[in-house]
């Protein structure tokens, strides 16, 4: 959809953000505003809200609507095996290294509806590492996590995902990983058995474990520089020596304080922590 003229001002966006913080403890003040404002306007127009005062009241007083608001203003677009070459590097380089550990802990931060967590699970299974791995898939938004835990994705996406999977070096029949159920593809239980879905807010929650691989792709783009620094420090706290940090195609560690203790894998947005 497109918005011609904004009906919510920048100042009103700030009012909503401070309400969210005050009433619900959700802090979006470190988010980049252009994207956030577009999402808010989109929801405002989608739900045909008659005016800003009504909008504000609805968010403050209806918990169900607050949940919808948080779900809608955060971007939850994701794919399985998005950027196939990235997954190829995971398959050929990163995961085999981690395979030498007795136990593998992976954190998918900002996992949304879970497509990347399941992709990782497929890679681990094919490398015969799934039995000794645990994938923590977290998001601030409980609604998307519920969806992720159902391990069902739209059948209409499977052609694209299968192509991505093959480009990432997959050699199995991708359709062997799911059962078609009308318009949905239900992924095998085994893939989910090593994924723990849990809420975690990168803005306000602390480190909760130590990992050998952290993936946080296309999440930092929505944060301002200060919040990016803070979240990267959180990842650094949560990553073992010689662990790997993977970011999105257009994200980088370069400007960050922690970059001096990381070495980038050539050609990839994957950094390895030096010891």
């Amino acid at each position: 959809m497109s918005i011609e003229l904004p009906v919510i001002t920048d100042e009103q966006v700030e009012v909503l953000l401070s309400d969210l913080l005050e009433y619900y403890g959700y802090d979006f003040t470190g988010y980049s505003r252009a994207s956030l404002k577009r999402r808010i306007l989109r929801l405002y127009s989608l739900d045909k809200i008659p005016g800003f005062a009504e909008f504000r009241y609805k968010i403050k007083s209806e918990h169900g609507y607050f949940k919808r608001f948080v779900e809608q203003i955060t971007v939850n677009v994701t794919e399985m095996f998005r950027d196939p070459l990235f997954f190829k590097t995971l398959r050929n380089e990163v995961l085999p290294k981690l395979g030498t550990y007795p136990f593998i802990r992976i954190w998918v931060a900002g996992c949304s509806t879970g497509e990347e967590a399941y992709s990782i699970s497929i890679l681990l299974k094919e490398l015969n590492l799934l039995h000794k791995s645990l994938i923590y898939a977290t998001d601030l938004n409980p609604v998307v996590l519920e969806k992720a835990a159902q391990s069902m994705f739209a059948m209409s996406q499977m052609k694209q995902y299968s192509e991505n999977y093959i480009s990432s070096g997959g050699t199995n029949d991708f359709s062997s990983y799911y059962t078609a159920n009308y318009s949905l593809a239900k992924f095998n239980e085994e893939l989910k058995s090593k994924i723990i879905f849990s809420t975690h807010n990168l803005v306000s929650d602390h480190s909760f474990n130590e990992f050998q691989l952290i993936l946080c792709r296309n999440v930092l783009i929505y944060f301002d520089r200060d919040l990016q620094h803070k979240v990267l420090a959180l990842f650094d706290d949560s990553l073992e020596g010689l662990g790997y940090l993977a970011l999105g195609t257009k994200e980088t560690l370069d400007f960050s304080q922690i970059s001096k203790s990381y070495k980038r894998l050539p050609g990839e947005k994957i950094w390895r922590k030096t010891n």
């Binding site: 920048d10 980049s32 505003r33 252009a34 994207s35 577009r38 999402r39 971007v75 677009v77 296309n218 783009i221 929505y222 999105g248 195609t249 257009k250």
Partner: peptide, 20 residues
């Protein structure tokens, strides 16, 4: 860049967005 929306912020910086 391909496959992202390019947005412009009030402080004259670019931000990228991977929404629909």
């Amino acid at each position: 860049p391909s496959d992202y929306h390019t947005l412009i912020e009030q402080d004259h910086t670019f931000s990228l967005d991977y929404s629909e």
